[in-house]
Design a protein around this nucleic acid. Structure first.
Lengths: 197, 197
DNA sequence: GGCTAGCGTGACACTCAGTTTCAATTGAAG
DNA sequence: CTTCAATTGAAACTGAGTGTCACGCTAGCC
């Protein structure tokens, strides 16, 4: 969308270019390794200038990780649509179905992406940072569900964080199994591991 | 320690210089802001060359965060000394007392440090990354306690991660209260928030 | 159908973090 | 005192990210 809010022809073109650049970057990173590839390499491979590349993605990491940006909000939205009388854990678990959808849509691509991120410290760190940024929205969504006004309570923060850990642990194990294990079961198992006192 | 294992005069000097450099960096960052301060500024303020500064701390972030490096191992060690029949949550909660000790030793310094880190995206990210690196040791310690041989089960990873979240949430709230709330109570409360199904 | 204002782009210069190399110095051990 | 290894500082280099500016294309307007 442009600043005015209307989706123009230009915005569509921009999104297409962005997707294309991201794809080129992903393939180059996979083939050569993230740190071997310079911004100049990326720009050359994509047929644009270094300046342009950096205008689409503020950093090298974001060329690959910008796909994650919307995820946090989507999970928070899913959380808000859960029935009000549902307990936090069930609501969180169900909201995370939103987050694992892509892994079912495109298992091979997701596997490759997860591996690339896991094997690249810079990407790993940046992804951690992004996920950390999801927590306020999740905690706020939990607080709203509880009927509280704004400031989420300590418990909401803890449960939001723990749920994200479950997601990460489940995805890690799924990746270690080369995508053979069932991600839904792993996620259930992760949540279950939180329960026993 | 030098490579041989013996602690020599040089090693003592090194440690002293390292502590001094860290202190200078911390004060400069607090006064001017992390990103305003360049490596040249740091070196000049500490009276050493840029090269030397970078030899002591591989990155600008580590000048302030290298204090955290040992923490993960210390918590894992504390975990291993807990009675074998204790449940994971109790053991984790008690092991984390090791981690919050510095906050009682030097509340003002800890408060300043926590704020600096929280308000500086680069430091926040780097700290997150370091903490992420603690999880393997914690998960392994839990697995050992359970009598299992090496590969920690999914549940161990989940509980190790959740415990670290509790620590972080507790410290965040403690910081927000300007250190007025009791960190031990906050940590207890955080762990309690994990329980209710 | 031209005109123009604005956006996307490329070129370039710049700052700064981090790496590497090398020569000079220091200080501990024999 | 001499020798040898470790510490340091100087300097050159790579690469990420920022800022500026001028050019060209295109959408919208008369």
């Amino acid at each position: 969308m442009s600043a005015a809010g209307r989706t123009s022809t230009r915005d569509i073109a921009r999104a297409a270019v962005r997707a294309e650049l991201g794809q080129v970057a992903f393939e180059l990173f996979r083939r050569e390794g993230f740190e071997k590839v310079t911004l100049d390499d990326l720009a050359a491979a994509a047929g644009v200038s270094r300046s342009t590349f950096l205008r689409y993605f503020g950093t090298k990491e974001d060329a690959v990780l910008s796909a994650f940006d919307a995820k946090g909000e989507r999970v928070a939205d899913a959380l808000r649509t859960r029935p009000a009388d549902e307990d936090d854990w069930t609501a969180l678990r169900c909201a995370l179905d939103t987050a694992i959808e892509p892994y079912h849509q495109d298992p091979d691509g997701s596997l490759a992406m997860t591996r690339l991120v896991r094997d690249t410290p810079a990407l790993c760190a940046r992804q951690l940072e992004k996920q950390h940024g999801w927590r306020p929205a999740l905690a706020r969504a939990l607080a709203e569900r509880a009927g509280f006004a704004e400031p989420p309570a300590l418990g909401h923060w803890v449960r939001a964080s723990a749920a994200l850990d479950c997601l990460n642990v489940a995805v890690d194990h799924w990746t270690d199994s080369d995508g053979r294990l069932d991600l839904v079961s792993l996620l259930d198992e992760a949540f279950a591991a939180l329960a026993p006192r």
